[in-house]
Each structure stands twice: as structure tokens, then as C-alpha cells.
């Protein structure tokens, strides 16, 4: 363990601490099902966080993820209502969201629009597009979707797990592999460290950056598909603040908002921490939901404060 991996272990430690606290406070907390539920309930957030990790690692940001998830649910619900087959709907939305990501990537890289502004506009656009399809909720009656949503796979221990979890874990593994074992992934880190250097070192910076946003678009779309399984409805206000939660998870996972440092596994733990907070509040029963917001805010603060202490730049001498 060194200075680089310390943040990850702190994140992990915090998660374990919180989980332990919950277990001590509530009798039924310490069960495998509760743990699995963390994954089931937050699969969509986890997938979004994986994509967001890539974006933030490269020094960028994407505010549009929540809106894209909502748009995905909306388009899926609408198309399913028109009797389209899921086999067409799912690839279609994934393609669409990926292209949307590509568009944002081009805005950011070719037109040099700041990621904050470009994805802000993207967020408006996607949310607005939802409303163009329908102002109200559209429920999903499709047989296949319902069966996927209800599917409770029984584990040897008697606990249940949903399909969403598998999708989440699979994507997380792919994301982890991409970052650690491909040149694409290392280029992401390089860009986050110094985009100019990466360019001068001969790395394909333009291509990579556009790919990053495309990948994030895909992840948002996949998160949307998973969310659709989870909620069985299309609604413009779904995941209204998802981007904040995703950013919070990534920051808590040890990724610097300036880029260049961080990991997928850290972001996953960040997601689990968010889920644990929510679970504890649910168990508590009386605390109102806004306490989650306050807790998350406090945690974000604790993490960035710690990051700022750990990453104090060493004084460059002459």
C-alpha cells in the first residue's frame, strides 16, 4: 500500500465501517440478502458510475447521464408500447445513447466546448426529448421485460439475485479490464495527467476522448436498460439527480476530479457506500429521505478534504 492505493483502502474501509455500524444497529442488517440488495437496487447507478469513471479520469465531466437514462426508459417504453420487440429495442437504445455520447465527445474535442457546458446542454436536450415523447409515465407491459424484471435467481444460500446484478458486474469487469489492461485505458489516464503531454507522446488523444464519451453514452444507455427492468416504466423525471450520485460515487472511490488518478473498483465501492447509506436510512425508518442528501454531502466533503491533504503537491525546487 502506498500513497496511490491509500485512497482506495480508505474508501473500502469506510464502506466496511458503515456496513458494520448498520449491522450492529439493526438485527436483520447483516444478511447476505441485504448485501445483495445493495447490488440489485444500485445496479443502474453502478453502471453509470463505471462510465463516469472514464470521463472523470480523462479530466472531463458528464452531467447528462441521468437524463440519458430517463430518455432510455422513455424510448424503450414508447417503442414497446408500439409492439416493437425487445430484441430490437435494446440494441437500438444502446446504439442511440452511444451516438449521443459520440456527439458530445465531438463537441468537446473538436469544438473545444468545455465538458461542463457541452454535457449541460446534453442534459437539457435529453430531458427535453423525454417530454417530447410523453409528459406522463408510460408503463411497460411487455412480457419479456416483465419476466426479466421479476426474475429472481435463487442462490444456493436461499437468497435471491436479479439479472441486473449480472449485467452490472459484467460491465464493471469489462471497465476494469479496459482501464488496466488496454492501451485505450492507459491513454485515458495519460490524458487525465496531462493532455498536452499525451498528445506529444504520440497517443491518439482525439480518438480516445471521443471514444470515452461514446463509452459513457453506452454506459448511460445500459444503465437505462437496467433501470427499465427495475422500474418497468418510462418517465421523464427518472434519475433526475443521477449525475450527482455518479460523481459522488466516483469521488468517494478515490478518483480525482482533475483526472489522472482513480479506478473502477473505487467507484464501485463508492456506489456501495451510497447504497449502504440509503439502506441504513430505510432500516431506521423514521429518518426522512433528505438525510441521505445531507449524509452524502458530508461524505463527499470528507473525501475531498482527505484527497486535498494527501495530494498536496510537493514543492518543486529549482
Amino acid at each position: 500500500m502506498n500513497k496511490k492505493t491509500l485512497p482506495f483502502f480508505i474508501t473500502l474501509g469506510l464502506f466496511l465501517l458503515m456496513y458494520a455500524a448498520g449491522s450492529l444497529a439493526y438485527p436483520n442488517f447483516f444478511s447476505l440478502q441485504v448485501f445483495i440488495n445493495l447490488f440489485i437496487d444500485n445496479a443502474f447507478l453502478g453502471i453509470a458510475a463505471v462510465g463516469m469513471t472514464f470521463v472523470i479520469l480523462s479530466g472531463g465531466i458528464d452531467l447528462s447521464v441521468g437524463s440519458v437514462v430517463a430518455l432510455t426508459t422513455m424510448i424503450s417504453a414508447d417503442l414497446l408500447q408500439r409492439e416493437w420487440s425487445p430484441a430490437v429495442v435494446i440494441p437500438a437504445v444502446l446504439l442511440l445513447t452511444s451516438l449521443f455520447g459520440t456527439f458530445q465527445g465531438i463537441m468537446i474535442q473538436v469544438f473545444r466546448i468545455q465538458p461542463f457546458i457541452a454535457t449541460l446542454a446534453g442534459m437539457f436536450f435529453a430531458r427535453g426529448a423525454c417530454y417530447l415523447i410523453s409528459i406522463d409515465t408510460i408503463n411497460i407491459d411487455n412480457e419479456w421485460y416483465r419476466s426479466v424484471s421479476m426474475a429472481a435467481i435463487e442462490l444456493p444460500t436461499g437468497d435471491f439475485i436479479s439479472i441486473n446484478v449480472f449485467i452490472f458486474i459484467l460491465l464493471a469487469l469489462i471497465g476494469w479490464w479496459l482501464l488496466k489492461f488496454t492501451r485505450f485505458g492507459r491513454t485515458v489516464y495519460a490524458i487525465g495527467g496531462s493532455e498536452q503531454s499525451a498528445m506529444l507522446m504520440g497517443l491518439p488523444v482525439t480518438r480516445t476522448k471521443i471514444l470515452i464519451y461514446t463509452l459513457n453514452g453506452f454506459c448511460s444507455g445500459l444503465a437505462g436498460v437496467v433501470f427499465t427492468f427495475y422500474m418497468l416504466s418510462g418517465y421523464a423525471l427518472h434519475c433526475k439527480d443521477l449525475h450527482l450520485d455518479a460523481i459522488a460515487a466516483v469521488v468517494m472511490g478515490g478518483t480525482l476530479l482533475t483526472g489522472g488518478v482513480g479506478s473502477v473498483e473505487g467507484s464501485i465501492i463508492g456506489v456501495l457506500i451510497l447504497g449502504t447509506i440509503q439502506t441504513i436510512i430505510n432500516f431506521q425508518g423514521t429518518l426522512s429521505s433528505w438525510w441521505t442528501r445531507i449524509m452524502v454531502g458530508v461524505l463527499i466533503f470528507a473525501f475531498i478534504f482527505m484527497q486535498s491533504l494527501l495530494n498536496r503537491p510537493t514543492k518543486q525546487t529549482q
Binding site: 492501451r183 492507459r186 491513454t187 495527467g193 503531454s197 499525451a198 506529444l200 507522446m201
Partner: peptide
Amino acid sequence: NLCPNLTVAENLLLGREPRSFMGI
């Protein structure tokens, strides 16, 4: 023009990392 957040080894071989079909 190198990346201070990456290791010396990585900086030396960035873009030219030895690979197998499993990755770097």
C-alpha cells in the same frame, strides 16, 4: 512532456506497452 501521475515504467512505454491477447 510526460504524465506525472503515471509511473516511470508506464511513461517509458506509453503507447508501446507489451501486450498479449489478454491485454497489457
